[in-house]
Computed example of a mutant assay.
Amino acid sequence: MLRYDTGLQWAVTLLIIAVPVSNVRPVGVSGRGLAVVALLVVNSAALLARHLPPTFPPRAALAWLTTGVVASAALLEVSDGGSGYLFAYFLVGHAGYRLSLKPALAVAALSSLLCGAVFYFYVGPDHQVLTWTFGLSTGIPVVAGILGRSKQQAVEAKLQAAESAERAARAEARTAVLTERSRIARDVHDVLAHSLAGINMHLELADALIDTGDLEKVRAAHNRAQSLVKESLKQAQWTVHALREDSLPLLESLTAMIESSGHRGALTVTGTVRELPAPVTQNVLRIAQEALTNAARHAPGAGLTVGLAFEETSTTLTVRNGAPSGAAGAGAGSGMGLIGMRERVALLGGTLTAGPLTEGPERGGWQVEAVIPG
């Protein structure tokens, strides 16, 4: 489109130059003929200069357009006829497009006065074809130029706004990518780094105890290391499921996550099952992962139930565990905690409640309930 517009503008410019050159007379190498040729050259150069880039200094543009307008009026005076007035029309129009309002109006007024005076004093005020008012009309194209300039500025403003929006979108996307990378790094660190450190510590302890001959302590350290390996595998499975929630259905992913935690058959689904938007699926799985991690960490050996309720306008996830039957440990978790779960639910316009169970068979346990619209 840009090439087409540029080529069209050049074609119009050359046509405007060709028409007066072909019919303005006299043309010669001396006297009036030489003056006409010289003025044709000046007018043509001034018209060709309208293709200079927009960065051309405004003062220089005002000088060349003023010179062109004066040369157009002089051409009307020294020639015997023709269409030399076309130079004035197009130069004034371009002044409205290139110059700011006041200089453009000044060029237009100058053109009207000079060309009007030429027609009045040279052609005659009562000429039957070209009256003196025709000269005054050479200033009118400035209006078209000003309107064209305003339209161009509006288009450029829209393009700049679109470019700014695109840059902001790219920056936002990059921020989201970096945030996701940080989250993945945090999850991997929580799952692997802490567990591996604990495993290494117990293996080193077992190695040191071998020299003492105390096989019971060696076996205890070995069993503890083996227990940490199993726990790390569970955490790794949960993290993998959480990272794949966009490609796995919610129920299958949630079921696999619960079974990997050692609670087969703990999921209860109510309501009409439906596919949820990816953000909702993602956050349900992340909240379930954190709740299961907390249950394993703070209530080892306790029973656990997970409820997923599909309602008309919302989806509710409930994770409930009983009172711990063993000593609570510091198992690896996702590092998100209750604050992170509340933030996830709040971003989707939902609510999250968490607290101890004070009644019923699970008294002394803990419950997390997330209600997410959609």
Rank of each mutant, 00 (worst) to 15 (best):
G7E: 08
L8V: 04
W10T: 03
V21D: 07
S22Q: 01
R25E: 12
V27F: 12
V27Q: 14
G33C: 05
A35L: 15
A35F: 11
V41K: 08
V42Y: 08
V42R: 04
N43L: 05
A46R: 05
A46V: 06
L47P: 02
L48F: 15
F56S: 13
A61G: 11
A63R: 14
W64P: 02
L65M: 13
T66N: 03
V70M: 02
V70F: 02
S72C: 03
A73F: 07
E77S: 11
D80G: 14
G82H: 11
Y85I: 14
F90Q: 09
L91A: 00
V92E: 00
V92F: 01
H94D: 14
R98N: 00
L99Y: 07
A104M: 12
L114F: 01
F119I: 01
D126R: 08
Q128F: 09
V129M: 12
T133D: 09
F134S: 09
L136E: 01
S137Y: 11
S150Q: 15
K151G: 15
Q152W: 13
Q153M: 09
K158A: 14
L159M: 12
A161M: 06
A162I: 05
A162P: 00
S164Q: 15
E166G: 11
E172H: 14
T175N: 12
V177Q: 15
V177C: 05
L178W: 10
T179A: 14
E180K: 14
I184V: 13
H189G: 08
D190E: 13
D190Y: 13
V191L: 06
H194D: 15
S195L: 06
H202T: 00
H202S: 04
G213A: 07
D214F: 05
D214W: 03
E216A: 13
H222V: 15
A225G: 04
K234S: 09
Q237H: 13
V240F: 07
L243Y: 03
S247K: 10
E252C: 02
M257K: 01
H263S: 03
R264G: 08
A266M: 01
L267I: 01
V269A: 08
V273K: 06
R274Q: 11
P277K: 12
V280Y: 04
N283T: 14
V284T: 05
R286S: 12
Q289M: 10
E290F: 10
A291H: 05
L292R: 10
L304M: 01
A309I: 06
V319I: 04
S325G: 12
A327S: 15
A327L: 11
G331S: 06
G333E: 06
G333L: 00
G335M: 12
M336G: 03
R344P: 04
A346P: 00
T351H: 09
T353K: 12
T358Y: 10
G360W: 04
G364V: 11
W366R: 02
